[in-house]
Amino acid sequence: MAETLRRVLARCSAAGNREESAAEAGPPLLLLGASGSGKTALLFATALEVAGEGRGPVLFLTRRPLQSLPVGTRTALDPLRLQKIRFQYPPSTRELLHLLCSAHEIPGPAPSLLLLDGLEEYLLNDLGSQEATYLTALLLDTAAHFSRRLGTGQGCGLVVALQTQEEADSRDGLQVAMLRRYFPAQCWLQPGASGPGEHRLRVCLELGGLSPRTEWWVAFQPQGEMRITPIVHPSE
């Protein structure tokens, strides 16, 4: 799924660059950032991107309904795309587990993207590391099942957003270490110096393996639109 997020960022940062076709989804992606850093907006932009690719629907899991639809990207909020995004709000860890355990019973076309926003809300304090690992494994197993249903060359992408704390204690550290084992690709959102009425952050995307890290500035304008500019390092 990292590939799709990379395409979203690359496409939104280039003027009308449309040749990139719906490439393969890429590895499962862990999106990390502090509260309010723009994770939901990026998840939603990715959902819009995949919803427009003419493949399966997008399954967007989150604890509570989005207060407002992030205006976000160059892609207008095309009703046809919005219809393909299915929001579900499992209120508890057990409900989320049941949703994932019974995903194979969901009728209709298999999703081509599975998104989970706010994983930290489901990794509660009393959730031991084994339960957290099983929940993570089920997310991957569910995406793998959807991929099998979609057929070869059409994999179901998976993106999970996790709120990180500045002062993460050792238990969070263990959980993030476990998560990184299951999510070879990671994307960090770090706040950057912002202009008046603007909220700017630096997005660092690592696809895992030997591929280089790529970075962008993402600036949210007052009305919520995202302006994305690639960060090119002098050595490149």
């Binding site: 084994q130 690992t133 099983y134 494994a137 089920l138 991957l140 197993d141 793998a144 099942h145 299951y182």
Partner: peptide
Amino acid sequence: LASCHYCS
């Protein structure tokens, strides 16, 4: 779960 390398 063989799809993602997990054992309980």
